[in-house]
Design a protein around this nucleic acid. Structure first.
Lengths: 220, 220
DNA sequence: GATGGTCCGTGACTAGGTCACAGAAGGTCA
DNA sequence: TGACCTTCTGTGACCTAGTCACGGACCATC
């Protein structure tokens, strides 16, 4: 598969330490896939058969409740893999959440058997998988902390800030933001309105324009 | 250390597959420790220098907010290790939560260097560490789901049920239960009072007596 | 039985989530 | 251009959960 090696080595510098054997295993069994934006890659309860390495684009992993509320757990982006998938492959369990491509995604897909083989053969691959776990666990703990104890205005302000520079605008509906934070649309609408009243943002249909990052920062 | 091998092999059957080399590494470097109930093993932000395998007893791992609220993330019990510790050792980061012994605990303590050596040498040890990650991630996702979307009455009823048979009593203050669920003492008091009104429990100082598991089950 | 610590109950209030509905913005098509 | 439809936003009313303040109950100890 021409060019694949180059892409792998730029996105996953860790894999440059793969021994020749493992590198061959990877090349021979990986499939390069292009997945359009909005594709549901896996659902809560689905079983899992392959390992995914993202070369380009972003996958959103989220939990959906019975009554339709959602919360984003984390994103899988260029150079990352999905821990939930790792989890399923290792524990041979079903997925515990849902994964959706947020943009067009180019990814490397490994069959479960190749994944397991690499895991036992290659120290570099193992290190990669272990670090992926470590960073995600830290993310999840932070999320628990926020959801359990955090105030929604603070979380919203933080989220807005994390996505922009002053003067920028965020293209997202209030519902999108609610999903992102695991809250409800009406709550977000009201908070945004209050931020607008304070002159921190300007509201448009499907778009939030940031006027004062300092104002937002004053909440955190 | 006489008897240590026996204890290891009964609590950690996985380690019976350790190769001779790794087993020796483990034996020569592990320290057997007895830790009294109520000891704080690590705090949020502390750095981490050793790996812990629990032989007997229970460690509670919890997140504490600035304003004093707490939530239990998971427990480390006989035959388990603490993922958070694993995490710190792998990512070389500080602890992101607090760990406290809930009972007297007997544990095997490995220096970080031994842990890393075992991780790279022994397949059996790696498998153990990977499965530990896998089960904890599943736990944490469930917790996020509950905290983000769950009703407190349902969670309380479920927790009470999970700890008893009918006629049993749970020895815990309302504050203990609130900590367990990441809620507030007053909220738990009110819910318990309501459960009592319905005849599902009887309340005593520091003790909740379960009268009807079926009643509690009707909420879930 | 007086004293002090822990635990529990409760009213009043605030924050955030739910429900219902109205109206605004923007696209499409005659 | 205007009628029509869909999606997005705003808002009042209400409910659930968490916070604050405080009083009183239970229990151990002297």
């Amino acid at each position: 598969m021409p060019g694949m090696n180059l892409e792998i080595s730029t996105c996953f510098p860790q894999f440059s330490h793969l021994d020749a054997d493992s590198a061959r295993l990877l090349e021979n069994n990986a499939r390069l896939m292009d997945i359009p934006s909005g594709t549901v890659l896996f659902r809560d309860g689905a079983e899992c058969s392959s390992y995914v390495l993202v070369l380009e684009g972003s996958i959103r992993v989220q939990k959906v409740s019975e009554n339709g509320r959602e919360i984003v757990l984390y994103r899988v982006e260029r150079g990352q893999s999905c821990v939930l998938t790792t989890n399923c492959l290792i524990a041979r369990e079903d997925y515990a959440a849902q994964g959706v491509t947020e943009t067009d995604v180019r990814a490397l897909v490994l069959p479960a058997t190749t994944f397991r083989a690499l895991l036992s053969k290659s120290e570099a691959f193992r290190d990669f998988v272990f670090s992926a776990y470590a960073t995600r666990i830290a993310d999840l703990l932070l999320l628990i902390q926020e959801v359990a104890f955090g105030r929604i205005d603070v979380r919203l302000a933080g989220w807005l800030r994390s996505r922009t520079a002053s003067g920028d605008a965020i293209v997202a509906t209030h519902q999108d933001i609610a999903t992102e934070l695991g809250s409800a649309r009406e709550v977000i609408s009201r908070q945004l309105k209050e931020f607008e009243r304070r002159g921190w943002v300007a509201l448009h249909r499907g778009r939030v324009e940031i006027k004062s990052r300092d104002g937002l920062a004053s909440l955190a």
